[in-house]
Design a protein around this nucleic acid. Structure first.
Length: 266
DNA sequence: AGTACCACCTGACGGC
DNA sequence: TGCCGTCAGGTGGTAC
């Protein structure tokens, strides 16, 4: 679930369900999802406050508290939020529960517990601390090109690297490279300018389209590679067999016919 | 600096 | 049915 489009959906979900609600209490079901603060500290930080303005940077979601601090959510590989009306049953793998004054609850759900919940004073400082690059949907074209020119990693690794640009994960990295017709092992700084511009526009287009489709991969166009990310699948564009390899320790799918490696480095 | 590999954690799935 | 390896949309640390 949780790449940029998914986190954007979580942001909208949080806003539409919980914005402005006052927090009565917090129940931590598994302290393993807390980072940098204890259960007691989290309670003190949240109790009595309203959930205010939300922000997203890459795959991180922030919600402002009355005292100016921010709750931070990261969803790992499988996390998400579930808003519960009075009487609604708590979902499985609910690791944290925010109780509102009106009896509704917000559950942070994750099976694998690779994400976390925390509280920070300053979002910008947090972003800097984490070494996150600009958000993939906010970065300007000139800034993006400048970043690409100084990034010597393979394209797949670079898109995945949150310090290069924040928000792209394994699935969307494959999609962006497929639509740009860039081989995942090409090095970013070796792309020519038109390829870099194309990469920028495709990145925006893929992420925005995914958001418009509710980040629901079942609704993604068949001409995308995402519906064809399985072994022996056929390229929706040319019919060649989709190749599967491992880059940056992540499974990578691409079309060896459409995404030419060329000299890889030239 | 870039890359490979491991660890964290839990569940699903295929093979035997 | 049960055990085992492998894999899964993320991040962080280590070692070369």
């Amino acid at each position: 679930m949780p790449e940029l489009p998914d986190v954007e959906m979580q942001k909208r979900y949080l806003e539409s369900t919980s914005l402005g609600m006052q927090i009565a209490d917090v129940e931590v079901r598994d302290t393993g999802i807390l980072r940098g603060l204890s259960e007691a500290e989290l309670k003190v930080a949240l109790k009595g406050s309203h959930l205010g303005q939300t922000r997203r940077h890459g795959k991180y979601l922030f919600a402002k508290l009355d005292n100016g601090n921010w709750v931070v959510f990261h969803f790992g590989m499988d996390g998400g939020l579930a808003f519960l009306n009075v009487g609604d049953k708590e979902p499985a793998y609910s690791r944290l529960l925010v109780w509102f004054e009106n009896g509704c609850r917000l559950s942070y759900v994750t099976i694998r517990k690779l994400g976390f919940v925390s509280v920070v004073n300053d979002v910008e400082a947090f972003i800097k601390e984490k070494g996150l690059g600009p958000d993939a949907l906010s970065v300007s074209c000139p800034d993006f090109l400048a970043i690409l020119r100084r990034t010597r990693t393979m394209a797949k690794a670079g898109l995945l690297d949150q310090s290069v640009v924040a928000g792209i994960g394994n699935i969307y990295a494959d999609e962006i490279l497929f639509q740009t017709k860039v081989h995942p092992r090409r090095h970013l700084n070796r792309l020519d300018k038109s390829e870099m511009v194309n990469l920028f526009q495709t990145m925006r287009d893929v992420l925005q389209t995914a958001i418009e489709l509710g980040a629901d991969s079942r609704r993604f166009p068949d001409c995308w590679i995402i519906p064809h990310r399985y072994e022996h699948a056929r390229c929706p564009r040319c019919g060649s067999e989709i190749a599967r390899t491992r880059i940056s320790n992540r499974t990578t799918y691409y079309c060896p016919a459409c995404q030419k490696s060329g000299q890889l480095n030239s």
